[in-house]
Each structure stands twice: as C-alpha cells, then as structure tokens.
Design a binder for these strands. Structure first.
Lengths: 350, 350
DNA sequence: GCGCGCTACTAGAGCGCGCTAGTACGGATA
DNA sequence: TATCCGTACTAGCGCGCTCTAGTAGCGCGC
C-alpha cells in the first residue's frame, strides 16, 4: 500500500455525496444498452421517438449529465476551443463575451484561461492544451512569436489583435492604419497640430498603431510635430506617461492619441487630477472602444474595433483549420472606425 | 456508414498535424512501461532519479503533454475547480485573479466559465460540471437559491458574495453591516444628512447592504432621511437611478451610497455630465473597491472587500468539503473597510 | 542459504463515453 | 419461400490515463 493513497475509496469519493450517475445507470434503469442512451444523447439517428423520450425522462430523473472528460477522450474531436485572455483587459473581456455565441453556433464548447499577474500566459496556455482544446484563440498574446509558432505547429491557433511576421497561425485583427488615420484627421480637423502618441511598447498592436500615427502625421505635413511617448497598455502606463508630460518643461501637446483605452484612461486620470481640462486643454483619444470607454463618465473618443465580427471570424478561422479546409496562416483584417465622444474637442488658444 | 461521419480517420484527425504523442509513445521510446512514465509525471515515488531524468527528456523531445481529459477520467479526483463569474463585473475579475494562486498552492486546476448576456449562469454552470469540476466557486451567482441548493447536493459549492438562507453550500462573504456603517459614519462625519442609497435590487449582497444602510441611518437618528432608490449592480442601473434623481422635483441628496462600484460609476457618469459637481454637490460612495474604483480618474470612495482573503477562504472551503473534513454549510465572513477617495467630501451650503 | 525488506519497475483493469460492426425483426419484393 | 431492405437496437473495443497488486532483483542479517 502506498502511503499517499491509503485506500482507493477514500480518495475516489472525496465527499459522502452519491456517486454521479453514468450512462450505464440510465441504460440499466431502462433495461437497454449503453449505446442506445449514447445515441439519444448525441442526437444521432437510430432510436425511436418513444425511446428517446424514455431515455431523457430516466436521465433527468437520475440526474444524469454527460461527462465531458469521458466524451472528449472517447471522441477524436473534443469540440473544445481554448481561449486565452488577460483578465484585466476590458477589451479582452469584450472579445470573450463575443466569442461565446459563434462558438455555440458552430458546436464548440469554450474553456477560458486567464493570464493574471500570478500566472503567466505560458501556464495559461498549457492549461488550455491540457484540457484538450482542439484549437486556441489567443487574445492579444504577449508571448514570443517563436512560442506562438511552436503552438501553431501543435494545434490550430488563431491570434486576435496582434500582427506576426511569420507564424503558421491565423491572425484576426483590425487595420490600424485607417483607424489611426481617422484619429489624426479628426484631431487635425478640430485644429490640433501638436498631437502626441503614447505608445504601447511592444504590446500586441502597439507597433502598428505607432507606425500608423507617424504616417498619418507625415501625410498632414506634421512630421516635425511627431512626438512619441513610451507607454504600455495599462492604466499605469498612461498614468506614468501623463506624469512625465506634466513634469516635462516642454508645453503639453494639445492632443494625445493613446495606444489603447486603458492607457488613455490612465492619461485622463492624471490630467484631470492635475487640473488639466479635458478636452479644452488636452484632447485624448483611445483605441479599442472597450465597454469601459463608453461610460459617460469616461466618455472617451476612441477607435472602435468590430468586436462581434472579430470574434466571429476568429472562431470560424479556428473551425476552418480544424476541418482542414485550408492551411493555417491566413490574416483577416477588419475595418475599424472612430467614435467621437467627449474627450476630444477643438484646442483653445494659448 | 453513417453520413455524418464518413470516415473515422477524417473526423479523428481534423488537421493534417502529427498526432499528439501519448504516454505510450514516451514509454515505447525508452523501452519502459506506461506505468513508469505515469509515476514520473505524477511525481510519485517509485522511479529512480536517472529514470525520471530520461523520462522527462524523452517527453520533451517528443513534445508530450499529459492529457487532462484522460487524467480526469482515470483519476477519481479531478482536482479541478470550476469558477463561475460575470465577465463584465470588475470585482469578479478581481476575485478570479485572486483565486488562481491559492488554487495552485492546493494543487487544483481552474476552469473558468463566464456568464455573459448570451449565455446565462445555468449554461455556464452546466459547462463547469460537464468539464468535471469537483467543486464550484460561484462569484455572486444570481440563479435561484433552489438551484444553488440542488447544485450543492450534487457537488461541493462555495458561494462568494451572496447570502443564502439555507442551502447546503459554503458561503464566503464580507460583513455588510460594518462596511455600510462606516460609509454612513463617514458621510455623517463630513456633515451629510441627506444620504440616499441606490440599491442593487435582489442582486447578490444587495439586500444586506440595503438593510445595513437603513440600520446605520437609524442609529444616527436619520430614520426620516432614509431614501432608497431602486437600482442594480451595473453602470446602467446607476445611470438610470441618477437620471431619475435629476428628473425628480425633490432636491438631490447631498450624498449617495451605491450598492456596488459599477452602480456608483453609473451615478458618477450621469451626474458629471449633468454638471453636478462631485463631491461638492453630491458625494458618491461605492462598494467593492474593484480595481476600476481606484483609477484616479474615477477615484471612488468605496468599501474595500478583502479580495485576496475571500479568494483564499473560498478555495480552502472547497478543499475542505472535498476532503470531507466537514459538512457543507459554513459561512465565513470577513471584515471590510472604507477607502476614502475623491468622490466624497463635505456638503456645500445651499 | 534462506527469508526479509527495500527499490524499481510492470501487468492489467477500468474511468465514462463514442463508434464500428454487427444482430434481430418486420414488411415489401420477386 | 427466399431475398432484400430499413429500422431499432446491442456488443465490445479503444480513447489516454491512474491505480492496485503484483514481480524481479539486490543487499542484508542470522
């Protein structure tokens, strides 16, 4: 007897609750075979309507629920999609919400795994793979491109909101250029010329937005006004950037385009607190239009990504890879568009 | 041949990727038994250090990862905790973040299931059970007490942040009375007398907070100033309540105590937008101290729940139930405390 | 020299289910 | 009556793993 498991029973039945009923229990109850019960629960042809009725009745009477783990194991296909997201990122939360309906429609079950401070993305992804996800949907993953490529070699992977040079995975994201372009157009149209950009470092989407900002500024003849302030995609990043700008001897820009909404909110926080009037003294524009941006108290001008379609395309891409109808490596891009709210307005004269 | 599955192979191997290696592959590679590989991966005694080394080496060379589904099936204990949360609720997100470390410490794996608009809590819970969760942690569940009791009869359940009269489940929550008491004390101390409460209807925690507000008001001799405005635990709830108060002919209260942070933020939104100065004209206090409340732009005075301890106690409670060391039905309550920030201040004279 | 206990390992059943390849049977066709 | 077909069902293997009950081999004391 091995010390860690003195008695099988003690470990197998943790609480004195009644054992979960299985398919065999239902079959025995009705005096039929397991296979028949299985047919009924899989909604496959081969059982008479009366039998189906009886099976369902007996099952609910016994409290039988199909066991996913066994089902996954027995089926070649698990029909489970693993979703990695960052708990703190409201845009990711929006994506997760939007992924559910399409997944259900295509017959997939979802397993979520959150990257949180105490648990990095590697662990989160391992958990998903371990739970037999057939494919992975990664919301703005920050792990290295090599790691993503390795994952992509093992199973179908769809990356949301991040560009990759060359990984055997599908990519679903928004065009950054038109969005950033619209932001700069909007601000220039309001009369701004000193438009700074707080970037997101190397976070997903950030390099592209930075580049798009630069291009848009140049095309407005504002190349000499390009000002990029290092930041990242968190409130803290925005706060730090704002503090830096306030401490700086140089005058404040009249408008700041942040790399995402959280960063913009961080800017908003520090500026408001410092008595800087928004948008009179400084206009602020974010990116993502996460649900938090629309709150009227925040009321952030931002670039809306088409979250429902992003989510739908991502799930469909995963499904296509799983069905083998095409090779991985597709890149799908959606239009995004400016949503003007209260944090942007014409600059006041100095 | 059944039409839905023309060829087994076609359905079994969705993509032309190489089959996932199994324990048998690792064992064959080394010329040992599967059981030995199993021992090594479970970190059980009975294998020599050299063998362990060789097993790990071969496993990583082949890209072997243990298959959870099979492991869950074979093990009596799955060591999986199912966590239900509401994606949109930042306090729930905080809880999820906090649950991970303790779960890991006690050797549990987590499966998350989000309740989102298109997918109610019943479905989310079924998914958790189907994925073989041994126990359920429910963050502020809104399903009926009967449903929770039924769940509790099937497997260990721990409810966070909601009181229940009589269900065979563990409850981990905060004392509402001292928190609400502190809020009212604080506001009264600042000079407020017209302190309204926007409640959360029947949402988890709301009835208790409402009652605690009433009691606190009474004990300050402000029974005649008690004013309860129907709301709920979303931004929209707070917004509606604020609009109602603004439309009302009666004068605004000088302070509003909201049933949770999201509701408070909704109030903040509408008031700010209507030109009501916060906190000069109206002080606003929330409840939960979710990470969003601390943003300096929101800077909400609120009641902090001890999220890390709540999370730890919840996981420990689930573990205790699973180990059978006690019957379910325990109620654990933690202290919570007021965090004074910028949305509360002395009332101005009228 | 023999049993003893220990370490290092293996055989094989079984977890709950899905799926292929059947069988049994009633009725239509030849 | 023999053949064929379709419907309603069943037998039993196998998914990848865990776990109990072993066995083989080795040094040890008496």
């Amino acid at each position: 007897m091995t010390p860690p498991n003195p008695r099988r029973g003690a470990d197998r039945t943790p609480a004195p609750r009644s054992r979960k009923p299985t398919m065999a229990d239902v079959a025995a109850e009705l005096g039929v075979s397991r296979a028949l019960v299985s047919l009924v629960f899989r909604d496959q042809p081969g059982a008479s309507p009366e039998t189906r009725e009886r099976v369902f009745e007996a099952a609910s009477r016994l409290g039988y629920k199909p066991d996913m783990a066994a089902r996954l194991l027995a089926r070649g296909r698990s029909k489970v999609l693993g979703v990695l997201f960052t708990a703190r990122n409201p845009h990711h939360v929006d994506l997760v919400e939007a992924i559910y309906p399409t997944a259900e429609e295509l017959g997939y079950d979802l397993v979520l795994s959150a990257a949180v401070p105490s648990r990095d993305e590697h662990k989160a992804v391992e958990a998903l793979v371990g739970h037999r996800s057939e494919a992975l949907l990664l919301c703005g993953p920050t792990i290295s491109e090599e790691d993503i490529a390795d994952l992509g070699a093992r199973l179908p992977v769809v990356v949301l909101g991040r560009h990759l040079k060359s990984a055997p995975v599908d990519i679903v994201t928004s065009y950054d250029r038109p969005g950033a372009r619209e932001v700069v157009d909007h601000l220039v149209g309001l009369g701004h010329r000193d438009i700074a950009h707080v970037d997101g470092g190397s976070k997903p989407g950030a390099p592209e937005r930075r580049r798009a900002y630069r291009d848009a500024m140049r095309s407005h003849g504002l190349a000499d006004r390009i000002r990029i302030i290092p930041g990242n995609h968190t409130e803290e990043g925005g706060q730090d950037a704002a503090r830096g700008m306030l401490a700086d001897d140089a005058v404040l820009p009249t408008a700041v385009f942040a790399s995402n909404d959280q960063c913009a909110i961080g800017l908003l926080d520090v500026f408001t607190r410092a008595g800087v009037k928004i948008p009179e003294q400084v206009s602020i524009v974010g990116y993502d239009d996460s649900h938090i941006a629309g709150l009227s108290h925040i009321d952030l001008t931002t670039v809306r990504q088409d979250v429902p379609r992003l989510a739908r395309l991502a799930v469909e891409a995963a499904d296509e890879q799983l069905r083998g109808v095409r090779e991985p490596g597709a890149t799908l891009k959606l239009e995004s568009k400016l949503v003007v709210r209260g944090t942007s307005g014409p600059p006041t004269q100095r």
